[in-house]
Design a protein around this nucleic acid. Structure first.
Length: 417
DNA sequence: TCTGGGGTCCTAGGACCC
DNA sequence: TCTGGGGTCCTAGGACCC
């Protein structure tokens, strides 16, 4: 049995790089570049150029703070559509090497080269990774860094060492040794909460935790987490790479520049989000059985309510009816102003495949979604399609999302996931 | 400093069924 | 009349990732 050969290809400063490609004369010429929410008051950094990072700017940082740290930086919005296209282009290039490519996010791709030893006969994993890197650069104008090894954990952690524009492969058998240079907080899924818990037991680095036996770790952290950490710090982790995989939920939410109070205002904003979510759901060829509504109160308390229906729905009117009831319920439970409202559609049922077309047609209109609701949505889709075509005719170069990609089962924001 | 938008996975309790 | 155990589905919340 050959040892697994897993790679993680991670695009360098993805959103910044795409912003520069989109606008070579503007953003392309600014070393100090920040890409992110330009709502000024409530935006955060999506990505900062390596030059800007030297000033302490990091992603997810409030924009106000980022500008204070790096006052000379240029701030531009995220070019979402171009990012979706570039993400797909990277995935396509990777699939030329093996079909087993999993998009973990827009800019991260797991690649399983196990069993390709004969195909790339004699070539080391390092050389194959370098060749992949060069090919992606040539075909997409984007630099990826590639980490690799016998499982996803070491591949991911090696990729951080490979940045920028490099390759780092961990040889089989050296996984445990490789891990010793890291902090526990560097391990994927060890977030702020876990880091704090570990620190309370005096555990900060991988080396700290290596001094404890399996039983001691279990005694400290509990059955599940104890075993989990014992394996991770020895470089053991999941191996399976899932080729493709479809979206499991679609959500659209919005933070408002000013808090919204009162049902009328909240409902108006909810309906706009419902329209976006329903449209994107249908574009991706899905129906949803579960409708959820999320609010973030003015004091940053997150609350959520959801309902699962007997039959899946995809029309604006059906989703809006449920969403409104959920919003009323949430507002009644805590009638305060909110800073964010979101709509989430899950329990997705595909309706794109020809095999399922009959099933859909046969699905009777029920109490949750009437025949009339569906007709209205069909009319909306028809108008959108027409408008999209006109935009293309005018040569503005901004085709409406999904116009020609219907039924590929890929979400606009997680294109290959 | 005052916190985006898009996701995934896990847990725990209750309802319900066998 | 009182007592089970197991399995599945649903809901809410939380941690985490990019």
């Amino acid at each position: 049995v050959p040892a697994p050969r897993i790679l993680l290809a991670d695009a360098d400063a993805f959103y910044v790089s795409v912003a520069r490609l989109v606008d070579p004369e503007g953003a392309g010429k600014k070393p100090l570049l920040i890409v992110g929410g330009t709502s000024r008051e409530r935006g955060v950094v999506t990505s900062a150029s390596y030059e800007a990072r030297k000033f302490g700017v990091t992603s997810a940082m409030p924009m106000a703070r980022a500008i204070r740290l790096c006052p000379d930086a240029t701030v531009v919005p995220v070019p979402w559509e171009a990012c979706v296209e570039k993400s797909r282009a990277i995935a396509r290039t990777l699939r030329d090497f093996t079909p087993v490519v999993e998009a973990a996010s827009s800019d991260e791709f797991y690649v399983d080269l196990t069993g390709t030893e004969n195909l790339y006969k004699g070539e080391s994993l390092t050389d194959t990774a370098r060749r992949i890197r060069e090919t992606v650069l040539k075909e997409t104008e984007l630099n990826v860094s590639i980490g690799g090894g016998t499982n996803r954990l070491v591949a991911k952690m090696a990729a951080t060492l490979a940045k920028p524009a490099g390759v780092h492969i961990v040889e089989a058998g050296l996984e445990a040794d490789f891990m010793r240079r890291f902090w526990l907080s560097d391990i994927p899924m060890v977030g702020p909460k876990a880091t704090l818990r570990y620190a309370k037991h005096g555990l900060k680095s991988v080396d700290d935790a290596l001094k404890l036996s399996r039983d001691q770790l279990v005694a400290l952290l509990g059955e599940r987490e104890g075993h989990w950490l014992y394996d991770r710090i020895r470089g053991k982790g999941p191996v399976h790479v899932e080729a493709r995989g479809e979206a499991k939920s679609i959500s659209r939410d919005q933070t408002f520049s000013d808090d919204v109070s009162g049902m009328d205002g909240m409902e108006a904003r909810l309906l706009r989000l419902v329209d976006r979510a329903a449209r994107d759901l249908r574009d991706d060829g899905f129906q949803a059985r579960t409708v959820g509504v999320r609010v973030r109160d003015h004091d940053f308390t997150d609350r959520q309510a959801s309902r699962t229906l007997k039959e899946p729905v995809s029309s604006e009117r059906a989703i809006a009816r449920v969403a409104k009831q959920l919003l009323v319920k949430l507002h009644a439970a805590r009638p305060v102003a909110c800073r964010l409202i979101g709509v989430q559609l899950s329990n997705l049922v595909g309706d794109a495949g020809p095999a399922q077309l009959d099933l859909l047609a046969a699905r009777p209109a029920g109490p949750d979604e009437t025949e009339r609701d569906r007709k209205v949505s069909q009319a909306i889709d028809a108008v959108r399609k027409k408008l999209g075509a006109e935009v293309v005719q005018r040569g503005q170069g901004t085709r409406r999302r999904g116009g020609g990609t219907k039924g590929q089962g890929t979400g606009p924001s997680r294109p290959e996931a």
